[in-house]
Design a binder for these strands. Sequence first.
DNA 1: TTCCATGTTCCGCA
DNA 2: TTGCGGAACATGGA
Length: 276
Amino acid sequence: MPELPDVETFRRRLQRHGLKRKITKVGVNDRRILREVSARRLSSALKGHKLVTTRRHGKHLLARIGGNGWVVFHFGMTGALETGRSSEPQPRFTRIRLEFADRTYLTYTSKRMLGAVRLAEDAEAFIAGHKLGPDALDRRLRPADFAAALAKRRGAVKTALMDQSLLAGMGNIYVDEALFQAHLHPKLLADRLTPKQIKRLYRAMRRALSTAIAHDVGVKNGLKSLPRGYLLRRRSRGAPCPRCGTAISTLRLGGRQTYYCPNCQRRSWTHARKRS
DNA sequence: TTCCATGTTCCGCA
DNA sequence: TTGCGGAACATGGA
């Protein structure tokens, strides 16, 4: 599930239900999810302390520990953060569980175990160390920065947008949506987009991400709760394009299945450059 | 049973 | 050096 909008939803959940409560117990159900930290060290860093602030950068969620440092969550393809009362059963696939003094809990769940939980001394250093680009929704990211980043890329625009070192937060799903909204073929070359196309893409990307957050896509009905006109509501081959009715096509790009409308997202001359 | 999956990383090749 | 395809990771669900 987790791309930027989902992680933002988890952040808000943590902000609301996980801060300023004393952590009384740290349960590690499966230590394979831990990176560069032992279960014992994670526990001693958290136990007796409170989480005091949250922060999201791309698909990473960071929570500042009252004592010192940060706990950093990455969700892989199937991770989530859930909260509840201690009396309720814990969710399936719980890997890490924090018990709070007010008899509530926070769990990190992950079906496929592709995510990671770690500790970091400093948030900025963590972001820099993991070579993450600017957050895709960061207000400081201006269209000109976006254009400059794309201009440095040789390959397909879709591949560029998925590269977390260029831009943090976009994944397979939302890249498809942004390209669809911007009427751009996924295989257009990033460094050959016109200023107009880049502007369209920038707007479509920001709109798609903030719309998904506003619609609580990470919580409620998932992608089905997006407004009409969104490709993601029916992301399947042969489904009618929500704009023109043409059957949605697929292609494989960067190892991922890519959905697009062959009519709305026609290639133009900007793609025609051949590799030499 | 087989295939696919919203992420990341590493390897080999061109 | 850059970009890309493919595989691996691990496991549930269609």
